[in-house]
C-alpha cells in the first residue's frame, strides 16, 4: 500500500471510530434522560400520594362541619356516604385504596371509602396518619387512622 492510501484508511478508521463513540454517547445520554424523566414523574406521583394524608381530611366531602365552630376532623357518616360516589373521583385519586380506621377508644375494622385496584400491578405502597374522627351517631370525637394504599 502506498503512504497516501494508508493515510486515507487511517482517516476513515478515525472517523468511523469517532462516529461509533458519538453514537454510543448519544444512546447513553438518551437512556439516562428517559430514566431521569421517569424518575421525576415517579417522584411527583409519590409526592402527590403522600400529600393526600393532609388533603383528604380537609375535603368538604368528608370533613366535619358545625354551624359555629371549625374543627378539622373526618365525619364518619359523611365518609360512609362518600363511599357511594367515590368511584367518580378516579381522576383525582387514581389507583388507590383509602380507608379510615377507628383506633381509640376502641379498635374497629377499617371503613373503605375509595377503592380502585388495577388488575395487574408491580408494587403496593402504604402510608397512614392519625386523624380526628367524629361519630355523629354517638356525638363523640374519636381518634382514627387514615390509611392510603397506592398500586402501581
Amino acid at each position: 500500500m502506498k503512504k497516501g492510501e494508508l493515510q486515507i484508511y487511517e482517516s476513515v478508521f478515525v472517523i468511523f471510530f469517532f462516529v461509533v463513540i458519538f453514537m454510543i454517547g448519544f444512546f447513553l445520554f438518551y437512556r439516562f434522560t428517559i430514566e431521569d424523566i421517569k424518575g421525576s414523574n415517579f417522584e411527583f406521583q409519590d409526592y402527590k400520594f403522600k400529600q393526600l394524608i393532609g388533603i383528604i381530611p380537609s375535603m368538604y366531602e368528608v370533613r366535619c362541619s358545625f354551624s359555629l365552630s371549625d374543627t378539622e376532623c373526618i365525619d364518619l357518616s359523611k365518609a360512609i356516604a362518600f363511599k357511594k360516589v367515590s368511584k367518580d373521583y378516579f381522576n383525582i385519586f387514581g389507583y388507590k385504596k383509602i380507608s379510615i380506621k377507628e383506633v381509640y377508644p376502641e379498635d374497629k375494622n377499617a371503613v373503605v371509602i375509595y377503592e380502585k385496584i388495577p388488575n395487574k400491578y408491580k408494587t403496593r405502597r402504604e402510608i397512614s396518619s392519625p386523624v380526628a374522627i367524629y361519630d355523629a351517631t354517638l356525638d363523640k370525637f374519636k381518634v382514627g387512622k387514615i390509611i392510603l394504599e397506592w398500586y402501581y
Binding site: Y47, K50, Q51, I53, G54, P57, C73, Y104, S129, V143
Partner: peptide, 22 residues
C-alpha cells in the same frame, strides 16, 4: 424535605386528634 413534610402533616393531624377526642 419530603420526609419532613409528611412527618409534619402527621404531627399536626395527631395533635388535632388528641385535643378534640371525647
Amino acid at each position: 424535605s419530603n420526609k419532613e413534610s409528611i412527618s409534619n402533616i402527621k404531627a399536626n393531624n395527631l395533635v388535632n386528634a388528641i385535643k378534640s377526642v371525647s
